[in-house]
Amino acid sequence: MANIVQFENVGLRYGVGEETLCDVSFTLRSGQFYFLTGASGAGKTSLLRLLYLSQRPSRGIIRLFGEDAVILPRGRLPGFRRRIGVVFQDFRLIPHLSAADNIALPLRVAGMAESEIARAVREMLNWIGLAERAGARPATLSGGEQQRVAIARAVIARPELLVADEPTGNVDPAMAERLLHLFQSLHRLGTTVVMATHDWHLIERVPGAHHLHLEHGRLVDPDPPMPPPAEARASTIVRSGL
């Protein structure tokens, strides 16, 4: 199984303060499901930003899709970003575009024909159960509906790597489970999923998922460990050198 992401001694510092991430090393294998946990301020969002190429590290090596992402020329970043789907914590839907238009954006950016985009968006709206709200603007959608639109936008281009920052943070448990099923469906199609969450119940529901745990910017063994029986539900942390 190929490595899709490799971090080696990665450090990230904003300005002149302490490092937000310190000596982070791990490997993500293609087609696997990863949970990223940690307390607020532990560095989860920073790590995800490095993953979806919104930030360059202060030090260390990041290999993404087999290439050194740290020294990747700026002109090649869009091509890499198109292979990554991102669900932002605050959704970041474009307020003056309809749900359908928001979902279609990655395909339009990729230059797909409008007829194909219309078909793909229709399928995606059905998949997330929002076919009737295709023309609705984000402001008129509930939090859960916005969340689903954000997820649909992240996955519509069938990314190789899906990065989700607390994607179930604003929805009720039933909706969280439904959204998790969306991610699992995509995972079954071969997408590598990295999901930051605080929800241990959610982690329990994905057998075979891997677990990355951050504390004060450092990657540590999960504490508390994965809910029992750990061997049945999730493997231990996958880190380089382990």
Binding site: P95, H96, L97, S98, A100, A118, V121, L125, A134, G135
Partner: peptide
């Protein structure tokens, strides 16, 4: 999706900026 929605989609890229 309605025909109207399809038309709106077609012009969406141009309207990405309000």
């Amino acid at each position: 999706m309605t025909r109207g929605a399809k038309v709106r989609e077609t012009g969406a890229e141009a309207r990405a900026l309000d």
